[in-house]
Amino acid sequence: MSELPDPTDLALVFKALSNPTRVRILQWLKEPDTFPPQLEPAEEVGVCLKHIQARAEVSQSTASQYMAALQSAGLVTSHRIGQWTHYRRDEETIARLADHIRTEL
């Protein structure tokens, strides 16, 4: 997501945040070190989808769909390492969103 004030972008964000589990995932990703250890530090590459799936207690396909929604909204970014996808919060976008909500909505 490039510019948050676009109503289409905001609608994607609010749609992604309309699911309680996706909101919890975004909250969990705020503290990536609370997930099980990985080969690469979660602070650098993000949290592996399998760890997100396990904590959320959902299937792999559901976890993938949740992360795709958060990524489409610009709230997370992904990083592939081999066959694994790691996710981390996009703090810049989240900060712009918070600022936009505070000043414009």
Rank of each mutant, 00 (worst) to 15 (best):
Met1His: 01
Glu3Asn: 08
Leu4Cys: 02
Pro5Ser: 13
Asp6Val: 02
Thr8Asn: 02
Asp9Cys: 08
Leu10Ala: 03
Ala11Glu: 14
Lys15Thr: 14
Ser18His: 12
Pro20Tyr: 04
Pro20Thr: 05
Val23Gln: 14
Arg24Gln: 14
Gln27Asn: 09
Leu29Gln: 02
Leu29His: 07
Lys30Asn: 15
Pro32Met: 04
Pro32Asn: 09
Pro32His: 05
Asp33Thr: 14
Asp33Gly: 10
Thr34Tyr: 01
Thr34Val: 01
Phe35Trp: 06
Pro36Asn: 10
Pro37Gly: 01
Gln38His: 12
Leu39Phe: 09
Pro41Ala: 14
Pro41Arg: 11
Pro41Asp: 13
Ala42Gln: 09
Glu43Tyr: 01
Val45His: 15
Val45Gly: 09
Gly46Glu: 03
Val47Lys: 06
Cys48Ser: 14
Leu49Lys: 08
Lys50Phe: 11
Lys50Pro: 00
Lys50Tyr: 10
Ile52Asn: 08
Ile52Leu: 11
Ile52Cys: 09
Ala54Thr: 11
Ala56Pro: 09
Glu57Ile: 05
Gln60His: 13
Gln60Val: 07
Ser61Ile: 07
Gln65Thr: 10
Met67Ser: 05
Ala68Tyr: 07
Ala68Lys: 13
Ala69Gln: 13
Ala69His: 15
Gln71Leu: 07
Ser72Trp: 02
Ala73Ile: 02
Val76Asp: 11
Thr77Asp: 13
His79Arg: 14
His79Ala: 09
Arg80Glu: 14
Ile81Thr: 06
Ile81Asn: 10
Ile81Arg: 15
Gly82Leu: 01
Gln83Gly: 15
His86Ile: 00
Tyr87Phe: 14
Tyr87Cys: 07
Asp90Ile: 00
Glu91Trp: 02
Glu91Tyr: 00
Ile94Trp: 03
Arg96Cys: 01
Arg96Met: 07
Ala98Gly: 12
Ala98Thr: 01
Asp99Arg: 14
Asp99Tyr: 02
Thr103Phe: 06
Leu105Ser: 07
